[in-house]
Design a protein around this nucleic acid. Structure first.
Length: 394
DNA sequence: TCTGGGGTCCTAGGACCC
DNA sequence: TCTGGGGTCCTAGGACCC
């Protein structure tokens, strides 16, 4: 099993763990006994490893199809237009699976269909029914309907807990029933998003393949603390560190931001204390990508919401209102002194930090970082750190 | 003792513009 | 006595995704 950050919740389970009734999102501490009893092996999240393996898998997919949309760290959509002229699609699916397995050692499921929503459904069934061999082709309408009749409506992509409940109350229990619901009725009780889902289930494409990731609208850096934080100085270090990371991400996107906010919160689960959670935001005169501006704004926001006497569980920094250049229309009477060499300084900073030879940081980030998250069962960075390469004995 | 992190889209309502 | 028509932008809240 794999745990979320801070070794807090279950986020990935093997088939054996699922059989024991362990659910996605279950808090780890509540189940220690069960874990020990069944000798379940657990790992802290290791995103450096997952991201690297993800890139390898995506590279294989990109080699096999002219257009690939990387949808998440472990999912992608491939455009198979034209492939069906050359070969059977199910056979193609098996080739994808075999090549990914051979080149990365990872097992993937393949779902094939005329729309993204149906392809997700095909993928779901490829995973659920092992006798499919991990590949399901839903090109034919007859097969689509046969499968949809077996699938609960809540399994459909875009149908979450709330909508699922509302649909059930209306008597719509299966994916097929949803597909057969007239769109005006859907529009009356829901919105355009669900209407698209319904149309997609009928085989009418409403969602395009997004080959190139659109530019971000928001950047969030936040973490729960390993131990609760009640001192201002520690909180300031954490806010400062998140601000620094957020600024790095912003420059990675080649963007400038005007809106910066910070939030702090106590645990929503603590029973014997009053919940305290607040956000403060600020808008700069000129868009920036300079860590110094972002740190200054974030700490100013923190000062506006800080309160002594709480045991804080989490904090974060958010960036928004992006521009592709660091310019904006000033007011006629605004006085503004631009920083000189800001871009160059940030480029040097990022250059050093990406070089692998060392890091420079801002004093405000602190040194001890006693507030950092827990990762007590971390797997080695097998593929991204020489000292942790896997050793094989011959 | 202990409950993740990072995103998107849509809608409604209010403020404001000409 | 009577008070239009057509827009934009912003924000908050609700839903969803992995």
């Amino acid at each position: 099993m794999v745990l979320s950050n801070n070794d807090a919740c279950v986020i990935a389970r093997s088939a054996e763990a699922k059989k024991l009734g362990i659910k996605m999102g279950d808090p780890f501490f509540k189940m220690r006994a069960l874990f020990e009893q069944h000798k379940i092996v657990t790992f802290s999240s290791n995103y450096a490893l997952y991201a690297d393996m993800s890139t390898r898998v995506m590279t294989v997919l990109e080699e096999m199809s002219p257009a690939v949309e990387i949808y998440s760290i472990d999912e992608a959509f491939m455009n198979l237009q034209g492939v069906s002229n050359c070969k059977d699609l199910e056979e193609f699916g098996r080739e994808v699976r075999a090549k990914v397995l051979q080149w990365t050692g990872l097992t993937v499921g393949v779902g094939i269909a005329p729309t993204k929503t149906l392809a997700k459904l095909a993928n779901y069934s490829a995973k659920k029914w092992t006798k499919t061999g991990g590949v399901v082709d839903l090109s034919l309408a007859g097969r689509q309907r046969k499968l949809m009749a077996l699938v609960e409506v809540g399994e459909v992509w875009g149908v979450g807990r709330r909508i699922s409940k509302k649909l059930n109350d209306m008597g719509i229990k299966t994916a097929l029933q949803l597909a057969d619901t007239p769109t005006p009725l859907i529009r009356k009780h829901f919105n355009i998003v669900l209407e698209r889902t319904v149309r997609e289930l009928r085989g009418e494409p409403c969602l395009e393949l997004e080959e190139f990731a659109p530019t971000k609208q928001q950047i969030v850096c936040s973490r729960s603390f390993g131990d609760r934080v009640s001192e201002y100085d520690l909180m300031r270090e954490a806010i400062c560190s998140h601000a620094v990371r957020a600024a790095e991400k912003l420059r990675g996107e080649h963007q400038y931001c005007r809106h910066i906010s910070a939030f702090i919160k106590t645990s929503p689960f603590a029973v014997n204390e009053v919940y305290y959670g607040k956000t403060a935001g600020t808008k700069l005169q000129i868009p920036t990508q300079d860590t110094r501006d972002i740190v200054a704004a974030a700490t100013k926001c923190l000062d506006a919401i800080w309160q002594d006497g709480h045991s804080f569980q989490k904090c974060g920094v958010m960036l928004g209102d992006f521009y592709s250049q660091g310019v904006a229309q000033l007011g006629l009477f605004d006085e503004y002194q631009p920083r000189s060499n800001s871009e160059q300084l940030m480029a040097v900073l990022d250059g050093i930090n990406h070089s692998g030879k060392g890091r420079v940081w801002f004093a405000g980030q602190g040194v001890q970082k006693s507030w950092e998250m827990k990762r007590q069962m971390l797997s080695p960075a097998y593929t991204t750190r020489f000292s942790e390469l896997m050793r094989v004995k011959l």
